[in-house]
């Protein structure tokens, strides 16, 4: 990803900011210009709930460039507490531990590095809920 694109997307990726449609009320991530459910362009940015559960997952064994260090790693569709579904990497969990329905929460992590001299990309991943986070 180019430096300007990373910069443009940093707020939504750092803080799990989605968009909510003021016409049909549904929210989605990442934010888009047009509601994927009803086609409305009347959208507002919203901070999405940081907790949810794993709906589906898969193991990436042949990773795209930049993610080689993590291989094999998990990506999942996470359904947040308000029903919004997010596609994201899972972290702090072994391949043998992940389960559909597993409670997870958003965590700020490193995505990749542009080599030893380039920028470092950060953003949201999901991990099993830490004891005490439900307080």
């Amino acid at each position: 990803m180019s430096v300007p694109r990373y910069w443009r997307e940093r707020v939504t990726k750092y803080r799990l900011i989605g968009a909510q449609c003021t016409n049909c009320g549904k929210s989605f991530y990442p934010p888009r210009k047009v509601c994927p459910y009803c086609g409305s362009r009347d959208l507002k940015e919203v901070a999405l709930p940081r907790k949810g559960k794993v709906i589906s997952f898969t193991v990436i064994r042949v990773p795209p460039a930049g993610f080689e260090l993590y291989s094999p790693y998990l990506i999942a569709i996470v359904e947040l507490e308000n029903g919004t579904r997010v596609l994201a990497q899972l972290t702090d969990v072994d391949l043998s531990e992940v389960k559909v329905g597993m409670p997870v929460e958003a965590t700020f992590r490193k995505y990749l590095e542009h080599g030893p001299s380039g920028i470092i990309e950060y953003g949201i991943k999901f991990r099993p809920v830490i004891k005490g986070e439900d307080k």
Partner: peptide, 16 residues
């Protein structure tokens, strides 16, 4: 730290 953690990610968690 795990592979995807560094000083920035640790600091964000503690700050939140």
């Amino acid at each position: 730290v795990g592979l995807d953690e560094d000083t920035a990610t640790l600091a964000v968690e503690a700050s939140l």
